[in-house]
Simulated assay, not measured.
Amino acid sequence: MWYATLQQMVEEAPFRPREQLIERQKLFQSIHKHTHLKGPMDKITSVAIPLALAGSCMFLIGRGIYNMSHGIGKNE
C-alpha cells in the first residue's frame, strides 16, 4: 500500500518543465549579487519593507520617550 503511494509520488510531474528550471538556474547562478537580492522584486521585500518597519518603530519609540519625558497622554 505505501509502495503504491511512493511510486505515485516518484511518477508525479514537476511544477515546471526541466528546460525552464535549467534556464532559471543558469540565470540565478550568473548573477553576482547577494543571495537574498537575486530576484527582480527582492529589493522590495528584503530592503524596503524592513527599512519601513524599522523607521516606523524608531518614530514610535521616539514619540513614546518624548511623551513620557513631558508627561503627555497620562491616564489619571
Rank of each mutant, 00 (worst) to 15 (best):
E11F: 03
A54M: 14
M1P: 02
H36G: 01
A4M: 03
L60M: 13
H36I: 04
G73I: 02
Q25A: 14
K38G: 00
F15N: 09
V47A: 05
I49H: 03
L27Q: 12
I72V: 15
R24S: 12
R24H: 10
V47N: 05
Q25Y: 14
M58F: 14
K26N: 13
F28G: 02
W2R: 09
L21P: 00
W2Q: 08
L51E: 07
K74G: 01
L21A: 05
Q29W: 06
E11Y: 04
M58D: 02
T35D: 03
M9K: 12
A54K: 08
F59G: 02
K74L: 13
V47R: 11
T45E: 01
G55Q: 09
I44V: 15
R18A: 11
M1C: 06
E76W: 08
I61G: 02
S56G: 02
Q7V: 07
G62N: 11
G55D: 05
R18E: 12
M58P: 00
E76Y: 12
R24M: 14
A52R: 08
L27W: 11
C57G: 07
V47G: 01
T5Q: 09
L6V: 07
P17C: 01
V47S: 04
A4D: 08
K43F: 14
E11P: 00
F59M: 10
S30G: 10
G64P: 00
P17H: 13
S46T: 11
A48V: 15
R63E: 02
G73N: 15
R16I: 04
V10Q: 06
P14T: 11
L6R: 10
C57S: 09
Q29N: 14
A52Y: 03
S69T: 11
I61E: 03
H34E: 12
H70F: 15
N67V: 01
P40S: 10
L51N: 09
G39D: 08
A52E: 02
I65G: 01
G71T: 06
Q7S: 11
